[in-house]
Amino acid sequence: LKDVPAAEQPELFLKKLQQCSFIFDFMDTLSDLKMKEYKRSTLNELVDYVTISRGYLTEQAYPEVVRTVSYNIFRTLPPSDSNEFDPEEDEPTLEASWPHLQLVYEFFIRFLESQEFQPSIAKKYIDQKFVLQLLELFDSEDPRERDYLKTVLHRIYGKFLGLRAFIRKQINNIFLRFVYETEHFNGVAELLEILGSIINGFALPLKAEHKQFLVKVLIPLHTVRSLSLFHAQLAYCIVQFLEKDPTLTEPVIRGLLKFWPKTCSQKEVMYLGELEEILDVIEPSQFVKIQEPLFKQISRCVSSPHFQVAERALYYWNNEYIMSLIEENSNVILPIMFASLYRISKEHWN
């Protein structure tokens, strides 16, 4: 590309894109070695080209870029070896075609981030159907691919105003399916990270639609499995909401109390961890609204026969901010906590 006159470059760019639409079989590791290497070097050249060149993004380039990217990334994901795939325990299936796939994602991100990129032209090709196929890929077991997808969808959400509501709705659907049907989708953490950034940018006052998403989707997402997989991302989204609008504290805490795990177990330890992150940002005026039901639950945890649950609940007394809230409201909290604290003071080492 850099060896031809500038005037010929846009056409050569299109030809090289078309060349890269050819898909090789990576399961057969020994086939087409030379041609695979040739495609890899061409993709590398395209990545460099969109990064440094100017004037390459002609109107004809948009459909070609989207077509090439689509040919390469949109595919049926390999079925998981076991339906009980646990990202914490099991080794993920890594994508065999990664040497090419990685460069295609790299190229696409540089294209979306290019200074010449015009959403008004691209929206003809990057549409709802494209987004739906992209969202399906978030179920990939390969964390490297999900990381690229996260950046791609984040950029698309940022640039295509017309797709925003659609993307949020589809993410809602994936979450609801995860909670009420499958309990399986590999990319929930990555989608939550994108949502955290979206919630962070919400304008005030919050729209009813956004509040509903918090109450109807994010709170029910507090299942045991969810917390073990993406507690940090979920807490981040909730805290973003509370920092935007502290009056949401009450529905959030009441929601969490409603979804509190039934049995004393390790799950409750995670739940207490989630709750502490929320209490860290709670406003005193909101705290008084929920302190009674909240401390009734904490009192139950403190006297839990499960040693770790009791200990995790007691650990709140090491948190200076929570401690200052308790002190200020001791007239309400002490009567709730006294019996449990008195009982364990006889037998608990802490």
């Binding site: 996260k150 984040h154 959400y157 940022g158 105003l161 925003r164 509501a165 990270e193 994108i194 955290g196 950034s197 979206i198 962070n200 940018g201 919400f202 304008a203 729209k207 639609e209 940090a232 991302q233 981040y236 805290v239 920092e243 992150e277 860290d280 940002v281 709670i282 406003e283 005193p284 200076e320 901010y321 200052s324 002190e327 200020e328």
Partner: peptide, 28 residues
């Protein structure tokens, strides 16, 4: 009396991405 502590502003976790500003004219 002791002064009340301010709630901690939650620090951005390592995965936090730049915020995307909401477009006020966006349809629900």
């Amino acid at each position: 009396p002791q002064k009340r502590l301010k709630p901690l502003k939650s620090p951005a976790p390592p995965f936090a991405m730049p915020p995307i500003k909401e477009d006020r004219f966006e349809k629900a």
